[in-house]
Design a protein around this nucleic acid. Structure first.
Lengths: 379, 379
DNA sequence: TTGAAAGCGCTAACAA
DNA sequence: TTGTTAGCGCTTTCAA
C-alpha cells in the first residue's frame, strides 16, 4: 500500500503539504502543487478512506435504508435508489445500502460506529419505528416520504394527497359521478405506508367534496387479483365510469379486467394512473397519469442531506406538486357513458360474476349516489 | 463522542483490554470482561468503524456493483441484492452500493481508497470491461454471472446453458418438434449479457442435437412488444407447439399473445419459463418453469467472498444446477396438438396479422423441419 | 508558502 | 491474565 508519506518523500515535500494539495484547505504554490500531483499520479496514490475518516470523523458515505417490504413495487423504489446513488456520487458520497433485516438496530449500529455521515430513509410509514431513532441520531437524515408528523425531521415527498385529489377533480370536471380507486396491495395499507395512505385519503376527501360516489379497493399486482378487484369494483357500482389506479404492478392488467366486463377504455371507462413516467404509456390505450417523480425524489433527498451535512438549515417538509399528463384513457365522452350505463342490460352476468376479494384490508365503501347533474364540458 | 479510552477508564482497565474484549483475540477473565461490557453498555459505546479500519485495514464493507442496465428485470436483480445484503449482514459486513454511473472508475476508486474489503459484481457481460480491473485489484471479488473466461476470477452462476437445454429436452421428450424461444430485450443480447446469451445458446444447441425446429426472438417486456413477438414466432412457424420464455417481464403477456392467435395453453401450446420462484405460478394456467435461484446466487456469492477474505481458496466457477418444476402449462397432449396444427385452417388470418418486430437484434432463425417422428411418451 | 509534530480512535505487538 | 506503547494513514494545529 502506498501512503501519503511515500508521496511526500517522492515529491520532496512534507506530508502535510500533500494533504493540503489534496484537500485544498491551504494555498499551495503552483510549482509544488504540480510536483505533488505528479508524484501522486506516478505512484498511483489513493488516500485511504478509513484513515481519513479516523482523522476527520467524516466518512463520505451516506446510508440508504430501503426496507423492501411486502407489496412495494420494486422498480419504482429502485428508480429512487439509483437517482439517489447518482446524485450522491456527484457530491463525492458513496452509498451504504441497508435493507429490511437491519431495521432500527441496523441504523443504530451504522450511526453509532460512524459508518455514515448521514441517512436517507425510504418506504416511510405513518408511524415509522425508525423515526424516533432518527430524531436522536448525531448524523442528519432525510426521509423520502412522510410519517404522521414531520416535526424535527427533514422529509421530501410527492404530494400524494394532492395527486389523489387531482385525479378526482379531473374526472369530476369531465362529468364522472362514480369513480373507483384501485390501490396498492392490502399489506401496504395495513402498515400505513405513507404514500399509499395519503393518495387514498386525498382521493376519498376529494370525492366527498365533489359529491362523487367512490369505491376503494386494494389489490395485489398479479393478473388474477387485479381481475377480481376490477370486477368487484364494478359489482359494487355497475355505474362506475372512471378508475384511479395507484398500483404500478396492476397497471398492465386493468385493461384486461375491464375487457372481462365488456367495458372499453376510454369509451366506457376513463382511467387515470398515479405512477412514474413510462408506465402509463405502455397500456393500450395509454393511460392518463399523474407523474410520480421518483428520480427527482431521490435527487432532492440527496441535495437536502448534503445541505444538512454542510450545516445549512433546510425545510422540514418538501412536497413535489402533482402534474397531470393527459392521454387516451380519459378521452371518453361521459354523457354517452352515462347513457350507456343507464341501460342495465350491459353485461349484467359478467358484472356479478366476480367473487368478492377476500381480506380487502382497506375495506370497500361507497357513498350514496349523488343527484344527477349536467356533466361539465371537458377541459 | 465516546471512545475506547472512556470505556477503559470507566471500567478501570487498559484500553487494550477493552479492545480485546471487543475483538475476542485474547482470553479475558470473566470478571473483567463483564465489567468492561457493563461499562460499554452504560456509556453506550460503539467502536468507531473508521478508526478500526485505519488500524486494521479492514472496513467490514463489501462493495456491490449493480449496473442497472437497459432491459434487465429489476425485481429479479433485487432479489439477488437483498439476499446478498442479508447474507453479508450475517458476517458482519455492510454493503456499499455502486450503480451504473460509477462503472470501472468507480470500482477503481473504491478499491484504491480501501473503502471495501471485497467486491460483488452483478450483471456480468461476456466481455465485461470490469473483469480486467478485478483481476488486478488488491481486494478479492466474486462475480454473479460468467464472463467469457473465468480464469483468475471467482464466479457463481446459475447454469443458464443447462437450463436452456433442459427446456428443450423436456419438450422434445414430450413430443414437441417446433419450439420457439422468447428471450430478453434486444439490448441485453447486444451487450452479450452472460445469462441471456448462455440460456439462448443452451436452448439452440439442444434443439440442434434433438433435431428440433427452433426459432428465437428477443422481446421487450411491455404488452405490445410481447404480443408482436409471439405473433412473429408463430408466423415464422405456425406449427410451433411449445414456447420457452426467458423474460420475466414478458411472462404475464405470453398467455394473451397466444390467445390473440387463438391458441390455448396447454392444449395448443406448451410453455416453459426460466424465472425465479413465484413468477411462473402467477400465469393462468401456471407455467412449468426452470427455477432461477436468485436468492441463492446472492447468498453463495457472499459466502465465497467471505471465504476469500479469510484466505481460503475457492473454486473459480460455481454453477447451480437447473431444476424443473412441472405445472399446468406443459400438460397438453402433443399428439393432439400436432394433429390440430396440421389443419392450416386454424386462424390463418390471425397468424399473418402480426407485423414483424423491427430491430430483432438476435435475429430469427429456423432449422429445416425434421422428418416426422413418433412422439415419445410423456415422462 | 511550507514543515514538524501532535493528534484522530483503534489494534496488536511486546512486556509483565 | 493484563498493561504499555507503538503504530495505522491521514488531518490540522503550531511554528517558521
Amino acid at each position: 500500500m502506498i501512503t501519503i508519506c511515500d508521496v511526500a518523500r517522492h515529491a520532496g515535500v512534507a506530508t502535510s503539504t500533500v494533504s493540503y494539495v489534496l484537500t485544498g484547505k491551504r494555498p499551495i504554490s503552483a510549482a509544488t502543487r504540480s510536483r505533488v500531483l505528479e508524484s501522486i499520479r506516478v505512484l498511483g496514490y489513493h488516500p485511504h478512506a478509513g484513515a481519513r475518516g479516523s482523522a476527520t470523523s467524516r466518512t463520505n458515505v451516506v446510508a440508504l435504508a430501503v426496507p423492501l417490504r411486502e407489496g412495494v413495487y420494486v422498480p419504482v423504489l429502485m428508480r429512487m435508489v439509483t437517482a439517489a446513488v447518482t446524485a450522491a456520487r456527484r457530491h463525492g458520497l458513496n452509498v451504504l445500502l441497508m435493507t429490511a433485516d437491519q431495521g432500527v438496530d441496523g441504523l443504530r449500529g451504522v450511526a453509532g460506529s460512524a459508518q455514515a455521515d448521514g441517512f436517507l430513509v425510504l418506504d416511510v410509514e405513518m408511524n415509522d419505528e425508525r423515526v424516533p431513532l432518527l430524531r436522536q441520531l448525531a448524523q442528519p437524515s432525510v426521509l423520502i416520504g412522510q410519517p404522521a408528523t414531520t416535526a424535527g425531521l427533514t422529509c421530501v415527498d410527492f404530494d400524494f394527497e394532492a395527486a389523489g385529489a387531482a385525479c378526482v377533480e379531473h374526472l369530476a370536471d369531465a362529468g364522472h359521478r362514480y369513480i373507483g380507486f384501485l390501490g396498492a396491495p392490502t399489506p401496504v395499507y395495513q402498515r400505513r405506508t405513507g404514500f399509499a395512505h395519503r393518495a387514498m385519503v386525498g382521493f376519498s376527501a376529494a370525492a366527498m367534496r365533489r359529491g362523487i360516489t367512490s369505491t376503494i379497493m386494494p389489490t395485489a399486482g398479479d393478473h388474477h387479483s387485479v381481475l377480481k378487484a376490477v370486477q368487484a369494483l364494478f359489482r359494487v357500482h355497475p355505474s362506475t365510469t372512471a378508475l384511479v389506479v395507484h398500483n404500478e404492478a396492476a397497471l398492465g392488467w386493468v385493461g384486461a379486467g375491464l375487457r372481462s366486463l365488456g367495458r372499453k377504455v376510454p369509451e366506457d371507462v376513463a382511467v387515470i394512473a398515479i405512477c412514474p413516467d413510462g408506465l402509463a404509456e405502455q397500456a393500450s390505450p395509454s393511460f392518463t397519469s399523474i407523474r410520480l417523480p421518483a428520480e427527482e425524489l431521490g435527487r432532492r433527498a440527496v441535495e437536502l442531506l448534503v445541505a444538512k451535512l454542510n450545516g445549512q438549515t433546510v425545510p422540514s417538509l418538501t412536497l413535489l406538486e402533482p402534474e397531470l399528463a393527459e392521454r387516451a384513457s380519459t378521452a371518453g365522452v361521459p354523457g354517452r357513458m352515462l347513457a350507456r350505463r343507464a341501460n342495465p342490460a350491459v353485461n349484467p352476468e359478467r358484472v356479478t360474476a366476480g367473487r368478492r376479494p377476500s381480506r380487502s384490508g382497506a375495506g370497500t365503501r361507497t357513498l350514496p349516489p349523488t343527484p344527477p347533474v349536467v356533466p361539465a364540458p371537458r377541459t
